[in-house]
């Protein structure tokens, strides 16, 4: 048994090393003075020159701003649509076309991005020819495309959160005299708030991270940050990208660590309260 425990933990350690060594190496080399990126220039390092260079790069900063806007709009749109879809699938019981809706919401989870990208682009081109909308391609078309695949993730998150709650909760509210809209806003919505928060963050990240679909549906002047990064790294390694990566990793890590700590705290409080309830009588 002990032997196997050792094997298990060894594999876990190796796996985590595999996940983190590339990120850590990027972070370390972001402070490297050498232009050669992977050769450590011991004399002049560590340095912040790539961070300075990054902050002076208006093109990257502009792309980052576009990405933030698109990601925020995507996340909001995807949460609205995904919540409705999740609610419909989890709570509306059987209706005609339910299986089809469910298929449409799970397919984007695994659809290769190149296929989604080409399909979206051809749709926008055809629509423009037919009805003159959307005029050209840019942030709007990127956002629509992102919402469509991100809402699938939100739907799954909301659906599985709702599945964890008794259907009878909503029935009880109806029974106590609440109209359907009241039931939604006073019972369902408060219960799924955690799912909405994580759904929003997930959709934001998916949009913020996407390069393939954006490449298909973007237009002139609407290059997102991943598109900019992609075109740079395709030409070779550049040290300021390391700096950018470091900043992103730190932001994300801080957020994730804080939210995990918060959740842990809440969990502890809840456990304590349940303990109290049991001993209370």
């Amino acid at each position: 048994m002990n032997n196997r425990g050792w094997f298990r933990n060894g594999m876990l350690g190796l796996g985590l090393a595999f996940l983190y060594i590339p990120i850590l190496s990027m972070m370390v080399f972001s402070f490297n003075n050498s232009r050669l990126v992977t050769v450590w220039d011991a004399e002049n390092s560590p340095t912040l020159r790539w961070y300075v260079r990054l902050l002076e790069n208006d093109q990257l900063l502009g792309a980052a701003w576009i990405s933030v806007q698109i990601a925020a709009m995507t996340a909001t749109g995807a949460v609205i649509l995904g919540t409705i879809a999740g609610l419909v699938l989890a709570r509306f019981g059987p209706f005609r076309g339910r299986a089809f809706l469910s298929a449409m919401t799970t397919a984007p989870l695994v659809m290769p991005e190149v296929i989604t990208g080409i399909a979206m682009l051809l749709l926008f081109v055809s629509l423009e020819q037919l009805i003159g909308w959307p005029e050209g391609r840019g942030m709007l078309t990127i956002t629509i495309a992102h919402i469509t695949f991100a809402m699938a993730y939100v739907t799954v998150v909301v659906q599985s959160r709702l599945a964890g709650f008794d259907d009878a909760l909503e029935e009880a509210a109806l029974d106590l005299g609440a109209k359907p809209a009241t039931v939604f806003f006073r019972i369902t919505l408060p219960l799924i708030v955690p799912a909405l928060v994580s759904g929003w963050l997930l959709a934001f990240t998916l949009s913020w991270d996407d390069v393939v679909i954006s490449q298909f549906v973007s237009g002139p002047g609407s290059s997102t940050l991943p598109m900019e990064i992609f075109s740079r790294v395709r030409r070779g390694v550049s040290p300021d990208i390391n700096a950018l990566a470091t900043i992103l990793v730190l932001i994300v890590a801080t957020g994730v660590v804080l939210s995990t700590l918060y959740m842990k705290h809440e969990e502890k409080r809840r456990l304590r309260e349940e303990q109290m309830a049991r001993s209370g009588n």
Binding site: Y20, I23, V233, V237, L244, A245, V256
Partner: peptide, 16 residues
């Protein structure tokens, strides 16, 4: 956690 950081940058890290 790595999933929340940029996919592109993580692939790029392997180039280095």
């Amino acid at each position: 956690l790595p999933f929340w950081t940029s996919f592109l940058l993580r692939v790029y890290a392997w180039v280095g």
